[in-house]
Design a binder for these strands. Structure first.
Lengths: 207, 207, 207, 207
DNA sequence: TATGAATGAGGGTTCATTCAT
DNA sequence: CATGAATGAACCCTCATTCAT
């Protein structure tokens, strides 16, 4: 996956990467809380204990912060998804593993996920963020493929529109970022288990 | 439900509300496509075939356009929800009716729903948009109550966390606005049927 | 005195001059209360029971309303001043008559006087309002001349700077417009009497 | 006295207040020359040798500049008035000292005084500028009280309406700001002496 | 005569960004 | 590394004015 993070041509010398990460984490939280457009660079600087101008020593633009946040998240996500997909599991087990990894990713990169959910659609149009669209395509291929494999294997119902089911699963998982709070009542794994139970078995009680 | 739309003391007189509605529909589409903050009033005016300043003959601010769009949508939604809730249906039938009405509402007010999804959380903080939070509360009461009634009636599974299930249902329905296109392959009712089937029966094939 | 009022090339037909006067009086009051710049043409229209655009049937601009108000006031003032100055009175009696006429003029054209006080200095720069400066010059000539005649006649003290005294008199009289309310406790003549008493005799009690 | 200037939570840090003062002085002069409403921030910026946006680094609005100008002037004025009033002088000497201090204040804060004269009445209505009204009240108390004390002490004439006399004195002093130019022919003290002479003794020559 | 709707030129303000120190 | 100050483009909004009806 193309990752603008890799061809980073920063102003900064390579030294002190911790400060960068701190600022990035701060920025991510503010972006998630207020929205990317609504967030001022000054607000981020305030939160990071510096002046707005000082941010430009570490990053060359507000947009590049966003870029790093999003690509960092997607890189991490795909590393895990790829290893699930390479494990040679059956369709149902693959879905279970993907869902579980997704909730874990929400737990790890909550802010980034929230930002992604809200901004990705608009961002995709810009060349700089084309990788978002590519990730989307790859994502659909993985999930939809698994679902279709499951239907073929008579593990999943065949009477449902595949793309509809895919969207249903995808949305169900990721919108959780809008209410999930790390350290809350349920662990990511517990949430995954319940979600899977609903998705796979439905919420209706069986006689 | 408090509705800022009702105590509108606008510049415009009562006559000729068509132009208002036209502009409002245009604004809603642009807001939905680009995000509220990212949308300039010039863009709305362009799209409406007028100059930016002219918008202010009909509305007194960009924010008040947003307000009317959102409150208009919620008013319509609640009129329908209320009549479903007043119909005295069983829990499963109530859920089915609510889901169906929701998809119909997405069909009717697609732009407004998309805007709501993206902006409501931040907007709620402003006093002017407090009604969004109130609607949210009422919404949760309706859905969660129906689910709990269903569990008590042994119609729904008792082993699921009720709030988790509620969120699952709620999000499942509404995020559809992010991909739904009116006049597409599936009618709102067809989408509702399939969604309900997944939610109620699960996606796993039964022996 | 040049009076833009005389070469009025209005849009309006000559008919219904009462409506004009009504609007003008309304405008004068609003200008006086809020300041010329701060007054919107719409506010005047509201107060006159019409829409902003409708004013332009009667007047061709906001500025021309101001012009008519101011020139109307000055025309009236000079008619009276001129007849005082032509009466051949002694210096003290002339001053007394001018002061009394001034307070009467404040009583008659309160709003116009207030506007004049506040806006004249800036307005003078514009060619259209050059007559304000000319009036000022003529005004100074009349008062200062009378004072100097009084000094020569040993009616007024000779140890005071003449221009200082002139300004003292002028300001004393006209600022009254800032607090005077027609129909209040004191009539214009009573106010004139007391002012004159102070100005001529001073406020110190004589042994 | 309430002073909005004191609870200033400005963008600017405490350091380098000189630039602020420069800009403020510039703004005051432009406000005085053109009127507050008629002054554009672009004009102030031009005069200060910067761009309009740059002003907002130092001040958070055009209004807050006005606020600082006015409250700065009033603070200074009251410091001096208060020390006069605390000096335990007789009525006539108190009036003389107040008048003299007033002319000195006009000399020091000419622009601020001119602005005050022209804008105070309208500004008072806004909560932010309520301190103008409070100052006015305190002002009247000080002057009117002194005048009444003087009448009781048989230093001033008893046959004059006290409030009328107060307004006469007040206006007489302050309108001088409309024509006074620092560094002109007469010093503030000289002007005060002549004004006092007129006010106390009158302009009529005594046999 | 008056209205409704629009125009268009600003005006105040925000904000990402730059840069000398 | 960070600050303080400034830039400049863009934004929302206001308002006098126009004009067809």
């Amino acid at each position: 996956m193309p990752n603008s993070n890799s061809d980073r041509k920063k102003t900064a010398v390579s030294a002190a990467p911790e400060r960068r990460e701190e600022i990035l984490a701060t920025a991510a939280e503010v972006f998630a809380a207020q929205g990317y457009r609504a967030t001022t660079v000054r607000r981020i600087a305030d939160e990071a204990g510096m002046l707005a101008g000082s941010l430009y020593y570490h990053f060359d633009s507000k947009e590049s912060m966003l870029d790093e946040i999003l690509s960092g998240f997607l890189n991490d996500l795909w590393a895990r998804y790829d290893s699930v997909l390479a494990a040679g599991l059956g369709p149902r087990e693959t879905i279970e593993a993907l869902v579980t990894e997704s909730f874990r990713e929400i737990d790890r990169h909550l802010a980034a996920v929230a930002i992604y959910q809200k901004e990705a659609r608009q961002l995709q149009a810009q060349p700089r963020f084309a990788y978002l669209a590519e990730s989307q395509v790859k994502f659909e291929k993985a999930w939809l493929g698994t679902l279709e494999r499951g239907v073929a294997d008579r593990v999943f119902r065949a009477d449902l529109d595949a793309r509809l089911t895919y969207r249903f699963l995808r949305d169900t998982v990721w919108v959780a970022a809008s209410w999930y709070r790390p350290g809350g009542l349920h662990s990511p794994e517990e949430i995954a288990r319940q979600y899977l139970s609903m998705v796979l078995e439905g919420i209706t009680l069986r006689g």
